[in-house]
Design a protein around this nucleic acid. Structure first.
Lengths: 201, 201
DNA sequence: CGTACTGCTAGGCAACTGCCCAGCATTGCT
DNA sequence: AGCAATGCTGGGCAGTTGCCTAGCAGTACG
């Protein structure tokens, strides 16, 4: 009754800041991006990290906990990186560059697929997305306000959704091997941005 | 060597137009939408259809063949339905209504996730997407040409991509439970369309 | 010294997977 | 009647999965 306390409901679990735990998260994240969430199993994660399979369940009670941890860590990281970039963006052009960066989008897409039928992850994504949206909104509103065009242009929320949507199709289609119309669209967006704010970057 | 001919490379397979085969396709499609592609296994598909598991492999050599068949059947069906609707659409407003219909989008999203790491399905999706895009393009070009605004507006391809992107974010976010900015965006789009073509319809 | 805790592991259970084979009964052709 | 094709099934193999239990060796601390 001494060493294995487990407080009647939870079994022994590894420390959240362990180095090994981090390695497992790395491996899971890689696997997920390369082969999809269905390929992420405890054995595969461990072998990719060069560790024993049981370690996965030593640090994460269930596989869902693993997925959540992977998502949380990456989302938090992206949020910080993005916040800094957004804060220093001074033009719509710079914001657009941030939005169409395919780095985060691919990652999010895979999680969206996973989240589609796991509510714990779905709500976590929703929470982060709202924070994300708010950040973008502030930045766009600030920049839009700085370069005028109140009635001519569209409300900031709409601009954010438009940019997000466009970025999503472009990234997704590129991944599928579809590229028709992409160049024209990118050129069009840049033309629009230049019309709104001729000073450029 | 008589009954089991199998021509040395392929084993015996069920007829493509069999009623049972259709039931299996139905079951697989349902499962996929309700629980994700990871939940589609031969046993589960069969039990959902009220049939024996071996029938799945009697009609489809591999699970990938099953997925491909599910996709092909549904995509073909959507394509026809869409073609008819597009052909009869006379205004941008009507086209927009077709684009934001969430029916097909959810289905496509699940397959995109699956396709991400199965090249046979990926190329099939790409093929259909290109046909789809071309159809939309023709329709948009026709309608845009009909209501003028050559320089003021954007090229048809860009319009299609914009609409597709917007539809994707809206559907995807709604599924996740995120709705901030959606109403404003829908209102904005309708305002834009009315500016382009006041006659509405 | 003993005690408590930590990181880690050997081993295993029950469930599930894709896929195959041999064989049944029915139908239709000759 | 004879024969072949068809729809279907009982049974099974080999592999993978999530998750658990019991325990080992090392360290910190009284």
């Amino acid at each position: 009754m001494a060493s294995t306390i487990k407080t009647a409901s939870t079994r022994r679990l590894g420390a959240p800041d362990s180095r090994t735990r981090g390695l497992l998260l790395d491996a899971a994240e890689q696997l997920m991006l390369e082969e999809g969430y269905a390929a992420v199993s405890s054995r595969r994660v461990a072998s990719r990290a060069g560790l024993k399979p049981q370690l996965v369940h030593y640090y994460f009670r269930t596989m869902d906990d693993l997925f959540l941890a992977v998502y949380r860590r990456s989302a938090e990281h992206n949020l910080e990186r993005y916040a800094a970039a957004l804060a220093s963006a001074r033009s719509l052009q710079e914001l657009w560059k941030l939005v169409i960066d395919p780095g985060g989008t691919a990652f999010v897409m895979e999680f969206v697929a996973l989240a589609n039928h796991r509510k714990a992850i779905r709500t976590e994504i929703a929470r982060h997305a709202e924070r994300f949206r708010q950040m973008q909104l502030d930045a766009v509103a600030r920049v839009l306000h700085g370069c005028g065009s109140p009635a001519n242009s569209c409300p900031p929320v709409v601009a954010v959704l438009l940019m997000t949507g466009l970025s999503q199709v472009l990234v997704l289609e590129k991944a599928l091997g579809i590229t028709s119309g992409h160049d024209e669209t990118l050129a069009f967006v840049e033309r629009c941005l230049r019309d709104l704010n001729p000073s450029g970057a």
